[in-house]
């Protein structure tokens, strides 16, 4: 599902954010990408979304060569990737339903599809009672659920999450993780970038650890790592 080969990325003038990274994630896996702030987790995620190109190396996502992809094809790549962020990125003037519907609308799904799919995915994340609430009427955890619902509404084969529990308390975070686990069980590949020790240790899934732009550890059923 994801393959990075000798990938390096440096921003202008800065020290490199990723150095010679090799990694492969197969379909259906659940992977934590861990490491302290500035270790290159976000760069890793954004490369997969082709928000920018690597300075060197090869990036394959969902069978597509991201580096040599024509830019007009990028939107179609992104339709195959669900994406969740720390700051939720919900539209404040739209209800939970409309926020999820919006994601389907803009990729040209019909009204019919939207009207059946949106309530279904909101039920999946446990918000079937709160379809008509605006984001500021929802708690942080609920907002993150809406954003997961939006990411998953189009049933993408790959779900990326960048620090999605960064703004949430531990109990809520665990709830969100359970939800991701459930999504993973539907066959969706899930990649979670986080520095939340507790959730990584509690889930016991594959862990890829980054430090200063290099992969320092890649283990199945791993934990967050050594004491800081």
């Amino acid at each position: 599902m994801i393959r990075l080969k000798n990938v390096s990325k440096s921003y202008d003038g800065d020290k490199p954010a990723l150095i010679d990274v090799n990694a492969a994630v197969t379909k259906g896996e659940f992977v934590f990408l861990v490491g302290p702030s500035g270790s290159g987790k976000s760069t890793f995620i954004r490369l997969l979304l082709r928000e920018f190109l690597p300075s060197r190396g090869e990036v394959i996502v969902a069978g597509q060569d991201v580096v040599h992809m024509r830019s007009w094809k990028v939107p179609f790549l992104r339709r195959n990737i669900g994406c969740v962020f720390q700051d939720f990125k919900l539209l404040p003037n739209k209800t939970a339903f409309e926020n999820v519907a919006f994601a389907l609308e803009v990729i040209g799904r019909s009204r019919n599809v939207i009207n059946t799919q949106v309530p279904e995915v909101l039920r999946l994340v446990g918000l079937e009672e709160k379809l008509d609430r605006y984001p500021d009427e929802l708690s942080g955890g609920e907002q993150q659920r809406v954003s997961i619902a939006r990411a998953f509404a189009n049933r993408p084969p790959l779900l990326l999450a960048d620090e999605l529990t960064g703004n949430l308390d531990p109990a809520t975070s665990l709830g969100i993780m359970t939800l991701l686990n459930r999504i993973n069980r539907t066959g969706t590949t899930v990649l979670v970038a986080t520095h939340d020790r507790e959730i990584v240790d509690s889930m016991r899934r594959r862990v890829i650890a980054l430090e200063d732009g290099r992969i320092v550890r890649d283990q199945l059923k791993g934990v967050y790592g050594y004491e800081d």
């Binding site: 939107p75 990125k89 539209l91 803009v106 990729i107 189009n154």
Partner: peptide, 17 residues
């Protein structure tokens, strides 16, 4: 811009935006 950011994130084509 927020809306556009989300549109691009979920894969709306450029012409659609």
């Amino acid at each position: 811009r927020k809306e556009i950011g989300i549109m691009r994130l979920v894969g709306a084509s450029n012409w659609f935006i």
